[in-house]
Design a protein around this nucleic acid. Sequence first.
RNA 1: GCCCGCAUAGCUCAGCGGAUGAGAGCGUCGCCCUCCGAAGGCGAAGGCCCCAGGUUCGAGUCCUGGUGCGGGCACCA
Length: 583
Amino acid sequence: MQMNLFAEIRALVVESLADMATRGELPAGLDMANVAVEPPRDAAHGDMATNAAMVLAKPAGLAPRVIAETLAARLAADPRITTAEVAGPGFLNLRLAPAVWQGVVGAALTEGRDFGRSTLGQGTRVNVEFVSANPTGPMHVGHTRGAVFGDALAALLDFAGFDVTREYYINDGGAQVDVLARSAYERYREANGLDPEIAEGLYPGDYLIPVGEALKAKYGDTLLDRPEADWLAEVREFATAEMMAMIREDLALLGVRMDVYSSEKALYGTGKIEGAIDTLRGMGLIYEGTLEPPKGKLPEDWEEREQTLFRSTAHGDDVDRPVKKSDGSWTYFAPDIAYHYDKVTRGYDLLIDILGADHGGYVKRLKAVVSALSGGKVPLEVKLIQLVKLWKNGAPFKMSKRAGTFVTLRDVVEQAGADVTRFVMLTRKNDAALDFDFDKVLEQSKDNPVWYVQYAHARVSSVIRKATAAGIAADDATLAAADLAKLGHEAEIGLAKKIAEWPRLVEIAARGQEPHRIAFYLYELASDLHALWNRGNDDASLRFLQEGDAATSQAKIALARATGVVISAGLGILGVTPAEEMR
RNA sequence: GCCCGCAUAGCUCAGCGGAUGAGAGCGUCGCCCUCCGAAGGCGAAGGCCCCAGGUUCGAGUCCUGGUGCGGGCACCA
């Protein structure tokens, strides 16, 4: 069972309109798709408002207010609705009975963390590909944001009824893993007591030192003084595996778990790349040709060359893209084509790629590929993750590999903690740059949203502990059976109204693929709880715990607990652990 | 030159086409603890929602064109 009050009332509105149509008060066959039931911006206008009369006025050929008046009378007959007033140009403002809001509290308690779960996705199979960091070194802050966003988006879609696969694409097939192998080989020489020669272009990072030692442990000195051709493949294999192990550890630190790891290398030699390209060729989308030089400033070494090209312009790209280099080998784009083809053939209804903003120029060709290879049936959404700007001691923290101020995922998580890192990185839209201030993030005040939300949850736990200590049963089963009619004060009903928004918010966030909305909602919900909590200071009757009155206490604590349940569910989507107490 | 993103209070940012009052936090100025944790709450001041057109019954929100900032632009991944 699911409880989405806004959907329920909308259903009532649509049903009433259909009734009106059968009685001839409205023309038959009107399109109700645009009829909305939403919270009004100003709470003084009521609990919910519908635009039905405005939307239908034109197609029905009636004045909005006429429709609104008739609809109002009909809606007012429903026991859930106390008043229905026509306002402004034809809006209909509804007020709902207290019992409805009390019912929301009860639903949150009986459904627990499933309260708000939606069937919006209808089991749509969606593949979310994220992180996909090259296996050549540790993950840095940029990857961290992508990882957190992808994981939260996946969780959000899951909660909204999609069938979600989390996937990591390992770029282990290109030239960069050869560079990794050569870099690791130098560390291997170092481990054997020789001076490493970290030439320009190799990876200088210390993280390869243990890889060199591990190579020594495995191969002893047998790889020394041998031509590259003798060891490259083995060292590459070994080093790549080590890097992936490190990346998996980093992801685990953040609490990210993938369902599928796909390997680029595994596409080579299987005919998958050739197959994908041939499929495109069969559509007339592959040809031998020469690209126009780019407009504007020409690269120094520009020269015309004939290559195998993908006619991506036929699917919305700006220029066609090479799939083969002039020497006949594949470009990096070719395995990507095969990989996306693979995802399409695995039967997903929707593909989502999460990429860094520096890959923006890559989006159109990917969409072209998926569009071509799925016959336009599988949409590809690409979410670009903007930069993270680090701040420390009130100043921007410049990252430089050379200066050794390169900030890794591990650095961030060790300093800020996984919960804080995740929440903070989800307080911004993916396409806006994010400031990550190490000082603020660790602050314990309402300036720090994670802390503030955690504090609200801890307060709920605290009340329950105190109630239990005072001999008032406050377990979920007892609270769910509490006499919620005792929740009558507008401040209490107000909090229940905020809770009622949760299922609706989940759908909005999922539809927009915008997990940040969850974070902002939780902040607001926490704020409402803190406000009610403090009103207990002025008005003792608003305290959650009413000494000596178990029934009233249980009703009030049920409200607090319902809030806690929603915070807990929301934090669960964001991958943040709810706090039981603050320390 | 082209492509993508962003532009809302002094600062950092929310805002699913809805209503003659555009929100939050910080900062500034006030107020509230013999009281479930004040690590909190309440209030005040502070806005040509970048500019110009357009669509719509209705635009901060959608479209077009500007301006500013960021990112990307032949075989590198």
